[in-house]
């Protein structure tokens, strides 16, 4: 099977029911995507499929055939961090960092939207990504600093 991963075409010869999470981490060696619960509760394994945020532990890799998958490794352009990644560092939105990759992808979708976002919009948009370190305040600040 083939799909686009962070802008590049990849092909994999694995059973289609394998979790996308495992394919990314173990077959494609992209370990930025984390496993926190394996049942769609914590969002640590969030990736984008065709620009929409999903939990990669709930996706069968066969389901991404022909689609575009973006992981945290695909956010920065070469060595250049995105404004959102920069904002996460500046605002202290990453502490232990384990939720950060998934959080960034959920936040990425939010900051791409053209409408003006409120703090409540950001809370709703990030509600599928658990963080135990920050109390979310610094994360919300970081995302709001990047919205239009």
């Amino acid at each position: 099977m083939r799909f686009t991963l962070n802008g590049r075409t990849v092909s994999l010869d694995v059973v289609g029911t394998r979790r996308l999470l495992d394919a990314l981490r173990e077959d494609l060696h992209l370990t930025g995507t984390k496993e926190g619960c394996g049942e769609g509760e914590c969002g640590a394994c969030s990736v984008l499929i065709d620009g929409e945020v999903v939990d990669s532990c709930l996706i069968a890799v066969g389901q991404v055939e022909g689609r575009e998958v973006t992981t945290v490794e695909g956010l920065a352009d070469g060595g250049r961090l995105t404004a959102l990644q920069q904002a996460f560092i500046e605002h202290g939105a990453a502490q232990c960092g384990i939720c950060t990759p998934g959080m960034l992808l959920a936040a990425h979708v939010l900051v791409q939207q053209s409408r003006q976002l409120t703090a409540d919009d950001v809370r709703e948009g990030l509600a599928g990504n658990l963080c135990r370190c920050t109390g979310y305040t610094k994360i919300i600040d970081a995302v709001l600093s990047c919205t239009k």
């Binding site: 769609g40 939990d55 709930l58 959920a106 709703e124 509600a127 599928g128 990504n129």
Partner: peptide, 9 residues
């Protein structure tokens, strides 16, 4: 239902 990730699927 859930949050964005679950609503998307």
């Amino acid at each position: 239902i859930g949050a964005a990730q679950i609503q998307n699927r």
